Amino acid sequence: MTLRGSDGLPLAHQDVTVRQVRHAFEFGCAAFEVADADAAYQDLWLGLFDTATLPVYWGRYEPRPGETALADLTAAARWLADRGVRLKGHPLVWHTVKAPWVDRLPLDEAERLLRGRVRREVRDLAGLIDTWDAINEVVIMPRFDNEPDGVPNAVSRLCARLGRVEMVRLAVDEARAQGTSPRLLVNDFDLGAEYERLIEELLEAGVRIDAIGLQSHMHQGARGADELLEICDRFARFGLPLHWTETTLVSGDLMPPDVVDLNDFQPAEWPSMPEGEARQAQDVVRHYMTLVSHPAVESITYWGMGDGGAWLGAPAGLVRADGTPKPAYDALRSLVRGAWWTDPAPARTDAEGRIEVEGFAGRYEARCGAGSATVDLAVGEHAVEARLAR
Score class of each variant (00 low, 15 high):
Met1Phe: 10
Met1Arg: 12
Thr2Lys: 11
Thr2Val: 08
Thr2Gln: 15
Thr2Trp: 05
Leu3Met: 12
Leu3Pro: 06
Leu3Thr: 11
Leu3Ala: 01
Arg4Ser: 11
Gly5Asn: 09
Ser6Thr: 12
Ser6Ile: 05
Asp7Ile: 04
Asp7Lys: 05
Gly8Ser: 02
Gly8Ile: 03
Gly8Lys: 04
Leu9His: 06
Leu9Glu: 14
Leu11Ile: 03
Leu11Gln: 00
Leu11Phe: 07
His13Ser: 11
Gln14Asp: 09
Gln14Pro: 05
Gln14Cys: 08
Asp15His: 14
Asp15Glu: 14
Asp15Leu: 08
Asp15Gly: 07
Asp15Thr: 06
Val16Asp: 01
Val16Glu: 01
Thr17Met: 04
Thr17Glu: 12
Thr17Ser: 08
Val18Asn: 06
Val18His: 01
Val18Ile: 15
Arg19Glu: 12
Arg19Tyr: 02
Arg19Pro: 03
Val21Ser: 02
Val21Asn: 04
Val21Asp: 05
Val21Pro: 02
Arg22Leu: 00
Arg22Pro: 02
Arg22Ser: 12
His23Ser: 14
His23Gly: 12
Ala24Asp: 13
Ala24Leu: 07
Ala24Tyr: 02
Phe25Val: 03
Phe25Leu: 06
Phe25Gly: 08
Phe27Thr: 07
Phe27Cys: 06
Phe27Gln: 12
Gly28Met: 00
Gly28Thr: 04
Cys29Ala: 15
Cys29Glu: 06
Ala30Asp: 08
Ala30Thr: 11
Ala31Ser: 13
Ala31His: 11
Ala31Lys: 09
Phe32Asn: 04
Phe32Met: 02
Glu33Ile: 05
Glu33Val: 05
Glu33Tyr: 14
Glu33Gln: 12
Glu33His: 15
Glu33Cys: 04
Glu33Trp: 14
Glu33Leu: 07
Val34Gly: 08
Val34Trp: 11
Ala35Tyr: 01
Ala35Ser: 13
Asp36Tyr: 02
Asp36Pro: 08
Ala37Trp: 06
Ala37Tyr: 03
Ala37Glu: 14
Ala37His: 05
Ala37Asn: 08
Asp38Tyr: 11
Ala39Trp: 01
Ala39Ser: 14
Ala40Ser: 15
Ala40Arg: 15
Ala40Leu: 12
Asp43Gln: 14
Asp43Pro: 01
Leu44Asp: 02
Leu44Ile: 09
Trp45Gly: 09
Trp45Ala: 07
Trp45Val: 10
Trp45Met: 06
Trp45Lys: 09
Leu46Cys: 12
Leu46Gln: 09
Gly47Tyr: 04
Leu48Ala: 00
Leu48Lys: 00
Asp50Gly: 13
Thr51Gly: 03
Thr51Ile: 04
Thr51Tyr: 15
Thr51Val: 09
Thr51Pro: 01
